[in-house]
Simulated scan of single mutants.
Amino acid sequence: MTPAARSQAAIDILDQVVDAARGGGAAADTLVARYFASRRYAGAKDRRAVRDLVYAAIRRAGELPENGRAALVGLAREDDALAATFDGSAHGPASLDPAEPAAAAGVMPSWLSAALIASDVPVSAQQALVARAPLDIRVNRLRTDVASIRAEIGGEAVAGLPDALRLPNGTNVEPLAGRVEVQDAGSQIVSLAARAEPGQNIIDLCAGGGGKTLALAAAMDNRGELIASDVDRARLSRLAPRAEKAGVTIARPLLLDAGREAAALAPFAGAADTVLVDAPCSGTGTWRRNPEARWRLTPQRLERFAQQQRHVLELAAPLVRPGGALVYIVCSLLDAEGAAQVDAFLATSPGWRAEPLDLPAGRPRGSGLRLDPAHDGTDGFFVARLIRLC
C-alpha cells in the first residue's frame, strides 16, 4: 500500500468507528480486524501503519468527530508528512481543503472532564487516560515461572507483583498461551485484594471471559472451589478453553439468567470466603486500550452502570459467609462508580465494614484504593474490601 492508500484505509476504518460510537456497534480493534480480514493483500507493515493512524486520530480527538475524514484531517493539520498523503490519487484521500471540517484536539468530552475533576482527577492527569498502554502479562504459576518466561522473551519486573512482566509493545505472546495471560498490572494488583488462598471457596460474580478467575485459580494453587458466573453467555464461554490451556481445573462456569440471578445463586448463600465483584462500569480507567469508548459514554449510560453496580452488590452480599469478604472492583476513576457506590452500600448495610488495603500501588479513596494511569502507570481502578461481620 502507498502512504496515500494507508491514509484512505484509516479514514474508512475511522468512519466505521465513528458510526459504531454513535450506534453502539463494535469496538475499534474489532473493526480494524474485520477491515483487514477482507483485504489479505495488505502486509503486516501496512496493517500496523494503518492501525497506528487510526488510534492516533482517535486519541487526539476528545469529542466524537463528524466522520472519519475529519478525524484524520485533524491529525494531518499537525503532521506535514501525513498531510502530503491527501494527494487525490486513485487510492488515496482527496486533497485537503483549508475550509473543510477537522476534528478538534482534546482529551475527552467536556462533561466527562468535569465529572473526573469532581472525582479529584485533575486536568493535568487526564491526558494519561488516553496515552498508549504498556503490554503487561501475568505469568501462570500453574504452568511455569517468571524466570523461565523472562529467559524466553525478556521483559521487566513490575514492583510488588511477583508474577508480572512488562513487555515491549508489539511482543508476540500468542506462543505462550496458557503459560501467560495478557493482564494489565493494575488488574493484577486489584485482584490481590481478594487474598485468595488454597482451599478457599470463592465466587467471581462478574467473571466475563475469566481473566481474574484464572488469576484467582493460580493464587489458590488449583485447590478449593471457584465459581465463575456471568449473564453474558458469549464472554463466559471463553473461560473453558482458557482454563484448559492454563491448567486450571477448579473454575466452574455458572451462566446466570439476567433478572433471575438470585435464584441461581441461592445454593451458595452464606458459603463464600470471598465474593469478587468486578462490576460492569464505564471503563474510564481503560481508555488507554479502548480510547473510542469515551465517545460512547453519556450521562444516561453512566447512570445505568451505577444501577447495575448497585444490583450486583445486592446479589453478592448474601453469598459471603460471616467473616468473609466482598471485594468490589471497577475499572473507573469516577466516584459515582467507585467510592460513592461503596459508601452507599455501607450506609445501608450495618453488618459490613471496610477493611484497609495494602496493595503495591494506588492511593486511598473513600473506603478503598484508587489506581490511575498518571500516578501508578497502570489502568485506572477503584477497589474496596468489605468484611461481613460475624
Rank of each mutant, 00 (worst) to 15 (best):
F86Q: 07
L82V: 04
W111Y: 11
S119D: 02
H91V: 08
G92Y: 03
S119M: 02
I117P: 00
S95P: 08
A94M: 12
A104S: 08
A76R: 06
A103I: 04
V121H: 02
A114E: 07
V107D: 13
V107R: 10
A105Q: 14
A102K: 02
L72F: 05
P101V: 04
A70C: 05
P109C: 08
A70P: 02
G106S: 14
D79G: 02
A90Y: 04
A90G: 05
R69F: 00
F86D: 01
G88H: 06
G74D: 09
A99W: 02
V73H: 00
T85S: 10
L75D: 05
A114K: 09
L72H: 01
M108L: 10
G92S: 05
D97Y: 02
I117L: 14
A81N: 07
V73G: 00
S119T: 06
A114L: 12
A83P: 15
P109H: 12
S110G: 11
A70L: 03
W111N: 15
L112A: 07
E100A: 00
G92R: 02
V73K: 00
S119E: 01
G92D: 04
A103V: 03
G74H: 08
G106Q: 13
D79Y: 00
P98H: 14
F86T: 04
A76F: 06
S113D: 15
A70F: 04
L116D: 03
M108R: 12
T85P: 15
D120E: 15
L96Y: 13
H91P: 00
D80N: 09
G92M: 04
A104I: 00
A81H: 09
D80I: 10
G74V: 07
A102V: 06
R69V: 01
H91M: 12
I117S: 09
D97M: 06
A105R: 15
V121C: 06
V121P: 05
L96R: 08
A105C: 10
G88E: 01
A118V: 13
G92H: 03
V73Y: 00
F86N: 05
A114T: 12
L116F: 07
A84G: 10
S113G: 14
D80C: 00
W111D: 14
A105S: 11
L116H: 04
L82P: 07
A99V: 05
P109F: 08
A99R: 12
E78V: 11
P98Q: 13
A83I: 07
G74N: 10
S119P: 03
F86M: 04
A71D: 01
D97I: 01
R77C: 15
A71C: 03
S89D: 02
A84Y: 04
A76I: 06
V73S: 00
A81Q: 13
V107I: 15
A71Q: 03
R69K: 06
L112V: 07
D87W: 06
A118N: 11
A83D: 14
S95C: 10
A99F: 13
S95N: 14
S113L: 11
P98E: 12
S89Y: 01
G88N: 05
L82W: 05
A81W: 03
T85G: 09
A99D: 12
W111G: 10
A104L: 08
D120C: 03
S89M: 01
A102S: 14
A81E: 14
F86G: 02
A81P: 09
A99K: 14
T85V: 09
V107N: 09
I117Q: 12
